[in-house]
Amino acid sequence: MTREEIIQKTNEALSKEFELPVEQLRPEASFQTDLGLDSLDAVDMVVVLEQKFGMTLRQKYDLRSMVTLNDLYNFIEKLANEAQK
């Protein structure tokens, strides 16, 4: 899976489930400040992305280390690369 595909799938899921306008989904957007997602949303987001990508994220996902969307894209890209090996 390419980075572009990861970005597109992630943005699709966030836009659909959390009603976030696509233009707000910039890599530098912060979950709390820019996107207005709270701690419960963060937990829901993990489940939504697990369903979207068909892989387990929750054991490896550290909520505190994720500040921006770019952190999330990097994390999923790393997991996808590991899964391919």
Partner: peptide, 9 residues
């Protein structure tokens, strides 16, 4: 605006 899910949780 979106309905946040806290109330429903």
């Amino acid at each position: 605006a979106r309905f946040k899910s806290g109330a429903f949780f």
